[in-house]
């Protein structure tokens, strides 16, 4: 049996996987921009031989380039937001914002696995004091496992919900054969627990309202 993964290794793997996925997508956007520049060059060469330039076509090409720049800029913003999640060990933040970022960071991986991620808006703001980076690691790790087992239900819904003594991240629908997510170290670090509702096919990751309360480490 293989050695259980340490929390440090899990965190590093999360950082590496997300960086690799986003940089790959950035290269795709750059490749499209590069080909547009190349096509403009081709058109200029043809214009030199007497073939007239079509202003509508040029307008369309400029619009395509702008679309890809916007796409790349959004990706970089998400990458930057994720990179800054390690700036502070503990912070008070909205859990739904964390889910929104997680969906942006993990969407490509989900698509590669044949799935899609959908955010279910929460009725009220869900603010908790926790470790932002480890929440992202927890979501990344959970998504990997859930998408692997998603079967025919390829659309995975994520929701943040207030509980009596904290908050929960709810994933649904999960595989009915699922018993738990194998991330004990990350859950312990976040003082979180997991619960499975077989009827509704929901996996709840329950987080405390304030991780610093009765913190032993």
């Amino acid at each position: 049996m293989s050695e259980p993964e340490s929390i440090e290794t899990c965190g590093l793997r999360c950082f590496g996987a997300i960086s690799a996925s986003l940089s790959h997508e950035l290269k795709n956007a750059l490749a499209i921009i590069n080909e547009h520049a190349g096509l403009l060059e081709d058109m200029m060469l043809m214009a030199g031989t007497g073939r007239p330039l079509d202003p509508d076509r040029l307008k369309l090409l400029a619009g395509n380039v702008m679309k890809q720049v916007q796409r790349a800029d959004t990706m970089i913003k998400h990458m930057n937001q994720f990179a800054h999640s390690v700036d502070v060990t503990i912070a008070c933040s909205d859990l739904e914002d964390a889910l929104t970022l997680a969906i942006a960071l993990n969407s490509r991986t989900a698509v590669m696995k044949g799935g899609t991620l959908v955010l279910e808006p929460s009725a009220t703001p869900v603010r908790i004091t926790t470790c932002p980076f480890w929440v992202q690691t927890l979501i990344w790790r959970s998504l990997n496992e859930l998408l692997e087992r998603a079967g025919a239900d390829r659309q995975l819904h994520l929701c943040a919900r207030k509980t009596s003594d904290g908050a929960a991240i709810i994933f649904s629908p999960v595989d009915h054969m699922l018993t738990n997510i194998h991330i004990p170290d990350v859950l312990n670090h976040l003082k979180a627990t997991q619960a499975l509702d077989i009827q509704t096919r929901e996996l709840w990751i329950i987080l405390p309202a304030d991780i610093t309360m009765n913190r032993t480490d």
Partner: peptide, 15 residues
Amino acid sequence: DEKDFLDIMSERLKY
């Protein structure tokens, strides 16, 4: 699987 890439690259290769 990037449609925009397919469109533009195929046009350049056709040229």
